[in-house]
Simulated scan of single mutants.
Amino acid sequence: MTDKTVLRNDWTREEIEAIYHLPLLELVYKAATVHREWNDPEEIQISTLLSIKTGGCPEDCSYCGQAARYHTNIKVQALLPTEQVLEHARKAKEGGSSRFCMAAAWREVRNNRDFDRVIDMVKGVNELGMEVCCTLGMLSEEQAERLQEAGLYAYNHNLDTSEQYYEEIISTRTFDHRINTINNVRKAGITVCSGGIIGLGETHRDRISMLLTLATMPKHPESVPINALARVAGTPLQDNEKTDTWEMVRMIATARIIMPSSMVRLSAGRMEMSGFEQGWCFMAGANSIFTGERETLLVTPNPGISEDLQLLQTLGLKPMGRAEVSCEL
C-alpha cells in the first residue's frame, strides 16, 4: 500500500490552478485516489442543520434570504426554546445523523441571555453523544472559549468567496472579520468548519483564491462545505443562473486533493441535483451531506432524511458514526 498524500499548508496559487483546470475525468480520478488514502469511501457523514433563530439579520449578504433589508417570504423566528432544539437533535440522531448544527441569524454573538441559552443547547446536544456545531456569526475569543467549555465540537464560519470578490457580495463586514473569527475558534480548541459558495457571479480565479486561503491556513479546516448558490426570491442574486453540477464536482475534487484530511461537505444546492449528480460529487471526494426532518437547509429546500438514506443505499454507501477526532492544537 502506498503512503498517504502528504498534508501541505504551503500550496501556491499556480499549483492549485493546475489541479483545478485538469481535464475533469483526470481530476476526479486523482481526487478519488486521495480520498481513498485518507477516508473510507463507503462512509458519508449525515449532518442535520437547524435554524434556531431565523431572519431579521442586519447583514447585507447578497445571497441570503434572512437579511432584514430584503423582501423575501422568509418568516422571522425568535430563538427556539432549548427543549424544542434538543428534541430536533434526538430525532436527527434517530434518523442517522452524527452531527447536529445550530444556526442563528445574528451578525455577531452578544453576551446576553440568548447566548446563555445557546450554551445550554450545546451542552444538551453534546450529552446526546453527537458532534455539536454552531454558526452564530462573529464571536470573540472569550465567547469561543465558553462554547468550547460547553462541549462545542465545531464552529462554522464560511469565507463565502475570495478576499478579492468579497466586497461585491457583502459590505456590512470584511473578509478579515471572517478570518478573525476563525482564528478565535482555533485558539479556543474548537474544530473549524469553513468553505464557500459558488454561483455568486465569481470567476474561476476567485474560487481558486478561496481554496488557496483555506489550504494555506496553519491547520486546514476540519470541515470544508462546498455550497451551490440557493437562489432566494427577493435577494440581489435571485436571477443568477443555476450552478452547473460539473462546477461543483470540480470544486469538491480540488478541495479533496489539497485538503485530504478534511471533511468535504456537499452542502446547499442538492435539491437541484439528481442522484447521479450527487454520486459524482461523492466520487470526487465529498463525504458529508446535510439533511433534516423539515426538508430544509436553513430556509431553502433540501432533500429529506428518507430520500437521502435511499440514495446512500442505492450507491452502496453508509452513514458515518461520530468521528473520534481530537480537538487538540
Rank of each mutant, 00 (worst) to 15 (best):
M1R: 08
T2W: 12
K4F: 14
T5E: 07
N9V: 14
D10W: 06
T12A: 06
I16Y: 12
P23Q: 14
P23C: 13
L24W: 07
V28E: 01
R36N: 10
E37A: 08
W38Y: 08
D40P: 05
Q45I: 12
I46C: 10
S47D: 08
L49E: 00
S51Q: 01
I52E: 00
T54P: 02
G55P: 00
G55C: 02
G56I: 04
C57A: 06
S62L: 09
S62Y: 06
G65I: 01
G65T: 01
G65S: 07
Q66N: 13
Q66F: 15
A67D: 01
T72Y: 07
T72K: 04
K75R: 14
K75G: 08
V76P: 04
L79V: 02
L86V: 14
L86R: 04
R90P: 03
R90E: 11
K93I: 15
K93R: 12
G96Y: 12
S98E: 13
M102S: 07
A104W: 03
A105G: 06
A105R: 05
R107H: 12
N111L: 10
F115Q: 04
F115L: 08
R117I: 15
V122F: 06
K123M: 09
E127N: 13
V132R: 02
T135H: 02
L136E: 03
G137Q: 04
Q143N: 11
E145F: 15
Q148V: 04
E149F: 10
E149Y: 10
G151L: 05
A154N: 08
Y155M: 02
H157D: 06
D160E: 06
T161G: 01
E163K: 11
I169L: 04
I170K: 00
T172N: 08
N180G: 10
I182M: 04
N183W: 13
N183D: 12
N184S: 09
R186M: 05
A188T: 03
G195I: 00
G196Q: 02
I197T: 06
I198P: 02
R205H: 08
S209E: 11
M210P: 04
L212M: 07
K219A: 15
E222T: 11
S223D: 15
S223H: 10
N227H: 02
A228P: 05
Q238V: 11
D239F: 13
N240C: 09
D244P: 09
E247P: 02
V249R: 00
R250I: 06
M251N: 11
T254F: 03
R256A: 03
R256W: 10
P260M: 15
M263Q: 13
R265Q: 13
S267R: 00
A268C: 08
Q278A: 05
W280H: 13
W280Q: 09
C281D: 05
M283N: 05
M283E: 09
A284W: 00
N287V: 05
I289D: 00
F290N: 03
F290L: 06
T300G: 07
S306K: 14
S306P: 03
S306Q: 12
E307Y: 15
Q310H: 10
L312Y: 11
K318R: 12
K318Q: 15
R322D: 11
